[in-house]
Nucleic acid binder design. Structure first.
Length: 276
DNA sequence: GTGATAACCTGGGTGC
DNA sequence: TGCACCCAGGTTATCA
């Protein structure tokens, strides 16, 4: 599941290969990907333009093209970008040919991924600002700021972490791993956390995301980098998808429960369940 | 405004 | 072996 570290892994691998190149041809095979624009309409906005920068914001991959045109790409559940795959992969939704002869293939078995066009800097910022809170690694993302955003909230902290408007880039995997690092139960009401807990959680989020980036992402199911290689973060998960196994910190059992409607993994010795 | 839930979608796993 | 069913999850829309 591409979360911030997986998208960053893709960005780092692709940026030196696409920056400065032109999108010679763009073929969109799935109208779901480009809607509300028709495939030809979106492809027409991209073709011939030079890639000035490949950026990222939260889980969005930002293809910043000349003339202030940006392709805002979200991989959702199973999206993968492959660079010069040896064979034509299955579930190809978009084909891109670069002007130096290299090829990109966007594959997405579940077809949740999206590509949207922003015309102009203001449109891009409006799109992102409406959907995303601060980047976890930025100085503006602070424990005190998160605490303010959560004030009065009774929803579980896991739901708060998954809400991209509160903090950008955290998904199900990294929320579980961050909460375990911080010793906080995922069902604890977000508004009930003390400042010291927010400090621990902020540090846990940053540490989990950085570990994911260092491992080139987590490849539980579909994630592959642009060269088709798997990430290794799944090999060092503390709790996520480890139900029934001993907690690496205390040896207690890792349990699976549902929080925010998502499969959630917790060690209730390290992460005491809230009373009531 | 807030929180919970359904819907989108398909491959893989499980049970019969 | 084949079929039906369930589950996974990021985001958005809808409802209470």
């Amino acid at each position: 599941m591409p979360e911030l570290p997986e998208v960053e892994t893709i960005r780092r691998a692709l940026a030196p290969r696409v920056q400065g190149r032109r999108l010679a041809a763009v073929e969109i095979l799935d109208a779901r990907w480009s809607r509300p624009l028709a495939p030809d309409e979106l492809a027409g906005g991209l073709e011939g333009r030079r890639v000035e920068r490949l950026g990222r914001r939260g889980k969005y991959l930002l293809w910043e093209l000349e003339d202030e045109v940006t392709l805002i790409q979200h991989l959702r559940m199973t999206g993968t970008l492959l660079f010069d795959p040896p064979d034509e992969p299955s579930h190809v939704r978009v084909r891109i040919a670069l002007d130096d002869g290299h090829r990109l293939r966007y594959t997405d078995p579940r077809r949740f991924g999206t590509g949207e066009l922003a015309l102009g800097r203001a449109a891009l910022e409006a799109f992102l600002d409406a959907r995303l809170g601060p980047e976890p690694f930025d100085a503006e993302c602070t424990p005190a700021g998160l605490r303010r955003a959560a004030r009065g909230r009774t929803a579980p902290i896991k739901a708060f972490l998954l809400d991209q408007r509160r903090i950008a880039g955290v998904g199900n995997i990294y929320a579980d791993e961050a909460l375990h690092r911080a010793g906080i139960h995922p069902l604890r009401p977000a508004g009930a956390l003390r400042l010291a807990q927010w400090e621990a959680l902020h540090a846990g989020v940053v540490a989990a995301l950085q570990a994911g980036i260092d491992a080139h992402g987590a490849s539980i199911d579909d994630f592959r980098d642009p060269d088709g290689a798997r990430g290794t973060f799944q090999d060092t998960f503390l709790v996520h998808r480890r139900a029934g196994e001993p907690c690496p910190a205390c040896g207690g059992p890792v349990r699976k429960l549902v929080a925010a409607g998502r499969g959630t993994y917790v060690c209730e010795r390290c992460q005491p369940r809230p009373r009531g």
